[in-house]
């Protein structure tokens, strides 16, 4: 799967994108967040405030309970502030 990070999540993780093979046991977005959080301090800091993190799967807004697959593009970012 392709993972994308924007704004302060990108800064905290230190990456704008990366490839990840769907880890065993990861079914939902929440499982993916739990997996990423365990990878290091940057990830833990990016995901420390769940309410401040939005997710999109294949460029559509999604929920943490939505399922993810290995062919998905999953993006994490703060609430949007355009306009």
């Amino acid at each position: 799967m392709k993972l994308l990070y924007f704004a302060w999540l990108r800064e905290r993780i230190g990456l704008s994108e990366e490839e990840l093979s769907l880890p065993d046991g990861v079914i939902t977005v929440q499982d993916l967040i739990t997996h990423l959080t365990a990878r290091g301090d940057g990830y833990a800091s990016a995901f420390c405030e769940p309410a401040a993190v939005k997710v999109a799967i294949n460029q559509d807004f999604a929920k943490v309970t939505d399922p993810v697959t290995d062919s998905d593009e999953v993006a994490f970012f703060p609430p949007v502030t355009g306009g």
Binding site: F6, A7, W8, A56, F61, A75, F77, P78, P79, V80, T81, G82, G83
Partner: peptide, 21 residues
Amino acid sequence: KTEAPFWKLEKTGDGETWVDA
């Protein structure tokens, strides 16, 4: 303003801050 994925980073004399929704 609530649906398009844009994020604003403001730069002032005090540094840089991401704008809150």
